[in-house]
């Protein structure tokens, strides 16, 4: 791992379970990653793979029935899993902030948006006048036209994209250094998606933010991320730089993800592969590799033992038995190979 940049946030061997009426759900089973100053880390995975849960644990807003079973989250030397609610309120917003998926529901419908932005400042004892001034500056920064007028309006008077801008303004209000974006564009129209992505990228550059970007959309990942972590069934199965993941993926699950993503060059004759089967029921996490039943390249050992993280390069790791020296050599599927070739070609041109 290159260490030209300090890791400000480290998640080590995190295990989270939920108590439900049906039993214990193992949502996160040993997640491990770090986040460096000024970078954008994308966490990719299907719904239910534990990406949101991991990040909620970082901000300390897990629901009451969640337990952190094992592992820690180190932020600037302090272990967040040991933090009390009171300590969390100190860092939430001012150090680590979060944006949610649905801007329609993440704003309080009966409070003026200006007040909602100000609130983040007011709880830190900033005077009303100054908070108002800062709120308007923030609204300008996130690209809201006519902020003085918009300040006095309610969320229902805003479009989806505008609301997401307000949510971003709220998240930025207290100058955090880590911003977690939980599928911030999923609920938006495609054209608006691009604007919001650009906004996040621009803000990230301006403020030297470290961003964790949760998504299931690989297109978005390619657009914003420096590094990518692929999650499956509560574990990170592969991580590396965005180039490594897109051009040299090692885990069969990453292959499947990449193949199932259509792009401009996908002609109708091309095979658009779907991933067969469904993710495992996390009430009863399977023995061995959770992806094995859906994996065309599953080996006997996949059903018996969980694969360790194999190092591919200094920045690139993958948890698959295929990287074991004894494993048969497997080539990337042809479809994907073709895809990558086309991509590279396009880049060269």
């Amino acid at each position: 791992m290159t260490t030209n940049n300090e890791a400000i946030l480290q998640v080590n061997d995190l295990h989270i379970t939920f108590n439900t009426f049906s039993g214990k759900v193992h949502a996160v089973r040993g997640v491990q990653f770090d986040l460096r100053k000024g970078e954008t880390l994308a966490i990719v995975g299907e719904s239910g793979s534990g990406k949101s849960v991991t990040n909620k644990a970082i901000v300390g807003i897990l629901s009451k029935n969640a337990n952190i079973e094992r592992g820690n989250i180190i932020y600037r030397g302090a272990d967040l899993t040991q933090y009390s609610e009171r300590q969390f309120t100190q860092i939430r917003g001012s150090k680590i902030s979060m944006i949610f998926q649905d801007p329609m529901s993440s704003l309080n419908p009966i409070m003026k948006v200006g007040k909602q932005i100000m609130e983040a400042l007011r709880v830190r004892n900033i005077s009303k006048a100054e908070a108002r001034q800062r709120a308007i500056e923030l609204m300008i920064a996130v690209g809201i036209p006519d902020p003085e007028k918009r300040f006095e309006q309610y969320p229902f008077q805003f479009s989806g994209g505008m609301r997401q801008r307000i949510v971003i303004a709220i998240a930025l209000a207290c100058d955090p250094e880590v911003l977690i974006c939980d599928e911030p564009t999923t609920a938006l129209d495609v054209t608006i998606q691009a604007q919001i992505l650009d906004l996040i990228k621009q803000i990230q550059k301006e403020r030297d933010l470290s961003v964790i970007f949760i998504t299931h959309d690989l297109g978005v990942v390619a657009n914003v991320a420096d590094r990518v972590a692929v999650m499956y069934a509560g574990k990170i199965v592969e991580y590396g730089t965005v180039d490594e993941i897109f051009y040299n993926p090692k885990h069969p699950y990453t292959w499947s993800l990449l193949v199932s993503m259509p792009d401009l060059d996908t002609s109708s004759s091309d095979e658009l592969l779907v991933i067969p089967g469904t993710p495992p029921n996390m009430l009863y996490p399977p023995k061995g590799d959770a992806f094995a039943p859906r994996n065309r390249y599953a080996m006997r050992i996949d059903y018996e033992e969980d694969p360790p993280m194999y190092r591919v390069s200094d920045t690139h790791y993958a948890a698959t038995w295929l990287l074991h020296p004894n494993a048969p050599k497997v080539e990337i599927p042809d479809v994907l190979k073709k895809r990558i070739a086309q991509q590279t070609e396009r880049l060269v041109r």
Binding site: P276, G277, T278, P293, R294, N295, R296, Y297, A298, M299, R300, I301, D302, Y303, E304, W321, H324, N326, A327, P328
Partner: peptide, 21 residues
């Protein structure tokens, strides 16, 4: 697999199998 422990663990078990839901 349970009764054939001595078999090579690194052997594809569903290479040709039709994987379906």
């Amino acid at each position: 697999t349970d009764n054939n422990r001595e078999q090579n663990p690194f052997e594809f078990v569903q290479r040709e199998k039709q994987l379906a839901d």
